[in-house]
Amino acid sequence: MTYIRTVLHIIALPLILLAIWFVTTLGETSFFVPTPQVLVETFTETWTSERFVSDVFPSLGRLMIGIALSILIGIVGGLLIGSFRWLRALLEPTLEFFRAIPPPVLIPVIMLLIGIGDEMKVSVIVLGAVWPILLNTIEGVRSMDEVLADTSRTYGMNKINSIRYLILPSAMPQIMAGIRQSLSIALILMVISEMFASTEGLGFAIVQFQRSFAIPEMWSGIVLLGLLGVVLSFIFQLAERWILGWYHGLREIEQAA
């Protein structure tokens, strides 16, 4: 029963929106607004053929590499910066500066420096998506519980075990919050990076459709992006439930008390 209710909650709003769309486009002749039926047809036609391999695949690849690199750099950098007070004092003002620069404006510079290939696109994704993870990791490391740190010291925990069993898990709730923010930033930057000097990719395809007045195709690309965001967030939630199970349990008990 609860299962059915959950499913209903998930699909209720999309169904209503679809219905509104269907009704409002009945007898609609506007070139720019396709009906749901047309869009579904175009969607399957456009994205199940060779476009999936030539555009979606490379995009997804770059997105995944970008996210993985952001997580790796963000966590390793955050652990280092969070662990050493002097390093933090040295880097934090500069980090604020770089963080404030919107990555899209750096695309021309990066294109000059490292060309227009995949490296450029992945760099753009990382340059934007790394910040929430990096800053949250620093904050997570800094907010370590003192008693827990003392406990580890009295048991003579070595560096590697401290990181593995103390620092990393203790910062994990904040790290996951950072990763969640980074996912949407990465998706946006994936699209933007493909709008410059590209020959393939989702962003490239959408812009090309638009310029060639293939309006239903353009819409279908946008829908695909939205679906991609949903899938990403779903995967994230599964991972979070697995990694932070202890944290949610602890919070539930604290709130019940």
Binding site: E146, L148, T151, W246
Partner: peptide, 29 residues
């Protein structure tokens, strides 16, 4: 030397199970 702190809730690792908490210092050794 081993120390038992007053704040048990903050001295046990909440992400480790009971046996793992007891085991960790030994693993470290």
């Amino acid at each position: 030397m081993a120390v038992v702190f007053q704040e048990y809730g903050r001295s046990l690792f909440p992400w480790l199970r009971v046996a793992e908490n007891v085991e960790l210092p030994l693993k470290n050794q």
